[in-house]
Amino acid sequence: MIRIANVTKAYNENAKPAVNDLSFQVNSGEIFVFLGPNGAGKSTTIKMLVGILAQDRGTIEVAGFDNLTDSLEMKKRIGYVSDEPEFYEKMTAIRYLNFIDDLFEVPAEVRKIRIEKYARMFEIEDKLGNEISSYSHGMKQKLGIIAALSHDPEVLILDEPMVGLDPKSSFLLKEALRAFCNEGKTVFFSTHVMDTAERVCDRVAIINQGCLIAMGSFAQLKANSGEQNATLEKLFLELTDKEEMPR
């Protein structure tokens, strides 16, 4: 469903690449977690996946569409939740959701069912008529998630979706992501919350300084490290520390 091949991206010609020769594949029906320390290149990768940034080298395909040559078709199949919940503050939440669904050309009756379902799930159904400026960070995050889910994408790409969510909403999101994948769709998300990653993901990729340093299921990572009782957090720290040591 997502295919990244030899992707390199630098913000300036002479700067060190933010993402360096990155390659991996995410399959349908999979929850794929992207881990890495701050500045590792996670958000850059995600911004390339959703069409905000272009890679300097390599190819990216989402749902079979190239991010540079077929970007419109690709975007129609993606639901994206950005790392910072940025919205038009003067819109009401329902207007924002209608706006997004208009662009994805979702019929009124269909969007009604989906928005009501997710708004009820995240407990903001009675606040949809409010201006977004009155929303808290967590509520904005929920709104972003509802907007991404309401057009029923094939691939859901989330950048740090758990930030700002209360424990219940965080739990509900994880349930929603699993249900989404059970329909054969794909979830790709970045997080710093190891516990979430460990419990939710089917596979995980760890990126450091723009390079992929490990990938596989949690069980595979544990087997590779030779520590059967290791937590993902421990593995992550070991891997990223090992990478940084020789530099």
Binding site: T92, I94, R95, N98, D101, D102, L103, E105, V106, P107, A108, E109, R111, K112, I115, D126, K127, L128, G129, N130, E131, S133, S134
Partner: peptide, 14 residues
């Protein structure tokens, strides 16, 4: 702010 807008599901062209 109190909810002062009704929740309408209305489809429009992009």
């Amino acid at each position: 702010r109190k909810s002062s807008h009704s929740v309408l599901y209305k489809a429009q062209s992009p």
